[in-house]
Design a protein around this nucleic acid. Structure first.
Lengths: 217, 217
DNA sequence: GTCTATATATTGATAGAC
DNA sequence: GTCTATCAATATATAGAC
């Protein structure tokens, strides 16, 4: 049947999500999908080709799989951002923390060794960032004039990925909720400043450390 | 020799860091460490036992391996926090992004399937959090009275883990620097408020979304 | 505690009939 | 495009002499 390819991608997607790439065997993918070895290798010459198909699927399904589900019930752009984060929260709950961000998992497992996968992982992140950035831009009339939408979107993704990692490790939503609450307060402080130029960075207490290679905002 | 066990742990530690747990074979560990199969299984009945030894090593070496290196040249507690983050930045650079946080990598790869490892990963995070929290406490006289040191430390860890993931994926320090700069501005806003009680959360523009399950601060 | 040789299962991948 | 049978390589782990 023509949907064999699709079943294979779905099975691989779910197994990679739950167990990771290396820990998932071809045999399991065949069993889960109900396909045979010959069919799999007809569509995907190597296991890595199947991985790329999975990452392509995620990349092309961020809208229906994630955004539309949130946007359907929330209109305010800032609340949409936190609605997306809440989507990950729900998935952590539903799958009892045997989950994480599927892209994040594969990013840490494969970014070093699989360049083609890394490119697709980056494209996934780029799509996610573009969606969040669009929300920040839509709310820009309530944010300080010097707000950098891309940087704020990137910060949001950063916090989400870190928060999912900690929740998965603790098998508990507390670290996730705590981190998102801190992120919320970060947004709140920006909103509280309104459309004025952001106040200049205050001078910290004089300290005696010499070299400081962190770039400040 | 009595240091065979140590050489095995070091080799496994480095290989797990670069390639992950599943992608690292026993044969490679033997080759890298110069030990023989019999020696390895004398000390570690299973591969997972070796993994636990590696995680224990990290847990017991956070001081000498990370903190003291930073604290030796920085005294200010807030700058020590960002100095620790800068340590990860340097490692990303030195190892040309073929790196990440070793604990974070293993957290996403193994938290689901290896409960004993997950416990040690959590202990690693706890040690890291305690160190950062101690710095926040040390700077508490410059922070708002209602600052929660544990929550701020957790936020810092969250941002660090997410930032390392993105830098590794992009093979570029930009996302790391951007996220850390945002975190720095978060700290700066807290410092700017001084020791007063934090201003109450401002009311955002009224919006029409109904259910909002994110916990606000 | 260390050595070499090897067992056993599973891995990703292939062959060739249909 | 699908099927079964199977390959060669690698995986983790073991045996037993020293």
């Amino acid at each position: 049947m023509a949907q064999t390819r699709e079943r294979l991608v779905e099975a691989a997607r779910d197994l990679f999500l739950l167990k990771g790439y290396h820990a998932t065997g071809i045999a399991q993918i065949l069993k889960t999908s109900g396909a045979n070895s010959g069919s799999l290798y007809h569509f995907f010459p190597t296991k890595e080709d199947l991985l790329l198909a999975v990452l392509t699927w995620y990349r092309d399904n961020i809208d229906e799989g994630l955004l539309q589900f949130v946007y359907a019930r929330i209109d305010d752009p800032i609340e949409r951002v936190f609605g997306v984060l809440d989507g990950y929260r729900q998935l952590l709950l539903i799958l009892e923390f045997e989950y994480g961000c599927p892209i994040g998992n594969l990013a840490l497992e494969l970014s070093n060794s699989h360049p083609a996968a890394r490119t697709l992982i980056r494209e996934n992140f780029e799509n996610w960032l573009a969606a969040i950035e669009a929300n920040v831009v839509a709310a820009q009339d309530r944010l300080p004039l010097d707000t950098d939408p891309r940087a704020l979107a990137l910060f949001t993704l950063t916090v989400m990925e870190g928060a999912v990692m900690l929740a998965k490790t603790y098998r508990n939503l507390d670290p996730f909720d705590s981190a998102v609450a801190q992120l919320r307060s970060h947004y709140d402080r920006l909103l509280a400043e309104g459309t004025e130029w952001s106040s200049p960075r205050p001078l910290p207490e004089p300290t005696e450390h010499q070299d400081e290679s962190i770039q400040h905002s």
